[in-house]
């Protein structure tokens, strides 16, 4: 951010304190930020550091906005962010809330989120990439461009890869159209670090780095319960115990995608519950329809063979773009 000279700033600050007083709380209320942050708190289990970071960022932006009003700062601060963390830790959801926060603070005009991956940005032949990337950027203008698994844009092993072209266009836009677009890059921590290392231009243009921790066992269970409650299901006490057991085993296996794996596990449990109810001959009560029993969970291959259920591998690689939009 380009600060005015110290003398000028002192003068201005003096003027400002002399004449204008601003109520931070009032400002916070009028921007309706608190609602968004509360929604974030309720919707997402755990993620303490992330929530704190979002809150801090919101506070910083609010203060910046007030400084702008009092003419202490003139330029738009750099808002581009990078979200690093394992799959299924809520990066897209947080990005959506972030877009809302930025919209409420009037840093972006529309506040929509365009989630893309490498496929949407990089073309298949020479001259295809630039229009494709520009198309996406145009669509995201006035909102937030969320690039999932951004490190795939850069493939050092293939020097003729078109990803580099896409990165160059992005860099240009991130610098020149800061008022129009906010770019959020997301991906695994180590791969993103390598990406930033080989693209120092990208690193210097990103102001906020947010790291998403993995969920603990209790948090995963809370997520599962929340997901079930949303669909009017619930665990029987034995089922809950076996689900904890399931989570313990599942986290040791490869391709564990946190909340997404939980959702897939629950989907399969619902499938087995439906089959079980279908096979039983006695009449079914409402409670039966709502309850997931231990046997629905224990039937998983994770227990029997210590292997993944067949569709879990694919679930991990499922296109994250589908989650939002």
């Amino acid at each position: 951010m380009n600060e005015p000279g110290p003398a000028k700033e002192n003068q201005l600050a003096k003027d400002a304190t002399d004449q204008v007083s601003v109520d931070l709380q009032q400002e916070l209320r009028t921007a309706h930020i608190e609602e968004v942050l509360e929604k974030l708190d309720q919707e997402l289990v755990g993620l303490k550091p992330v929530k704190t970071r979002v809150r801090e960022t919101a506070a910083l932006l609010l203060v910046d906005r007030m400084r702008k009003k009092l003419e202490l700062a003139s330029e738009t601060p750099t808002l581009h962010m990078s979200f690093t963390g394992n799959p299924g830790t809520g990066k897209t959801t947080v990005a959506m809330r972030m877009a809302e926060v930025l919209h409420r603070l009037e840093y972006v005009r529309e506040g929509h989120l365009v989630a893309v991956t490498r496929d949407d940005l990089v073309g298949q032949y020479i001259g295809h990439t630039a229009p494709k990337t520009k198309e996406v950027i145009k669509r995201a203008m006035g909102g937030v461009l969320f690039i999932d698994e951004a490190y795939y844009l850069y493939r050092p092993e293939n020097e003729r890869d078109y990803g580099q072209e896409s990165i160059e266009i992005l860099l240009q836009v991130m610098e020149n159209n800061r008022d129009d677009i906010v770019v959020i890059l997301a991906g695994y921590k180590d791969k993103m670090d390598r990406f930033f290392h080989s693209n120092p231009g990208m690193r210097s243009r990103i102001a906020h780095h947010v790291d998403f921790p993995d969920y603990t066992l209790e948090e995963l269970l809370a997520i599962a319960k929340l997901m079930l409650a949303q669909q009017n299901y619930r665990f029987s006490p034995e089922a809950e115990a076996s689900f904890i057991d399931y989570l313990k085993r599942r986290t040791q296996l490869p391709h564990f995608a946190n909340a997404r794996s939980v959702r897939n596990a629950l989907d399969r449990a619902r499938l087995r519950q439906a089959n079980r109810l279908f096979a039983s001959n006695h009449p079914i009560t409402k409670l039966d329809l709502m309850t997931i029993e231990a046997e629905d969970i224990l039937a998983s291959r994770v227990f029997k063979e210590g292997k993944l259920d067949s569709d879990d591998v694919r679930a991990d690689e499922a296109d994250p773009a589908q989650v939002s939009n």
Partner: peptide
């Protein structure tokens, strides 16, 4: 499919 005028001004 644009939501904001900035994209059109860009063009």
């Amino acid at each position: 499919d644009l939501k904001d005028a900035a994209g059109i001004l860009f063009e």
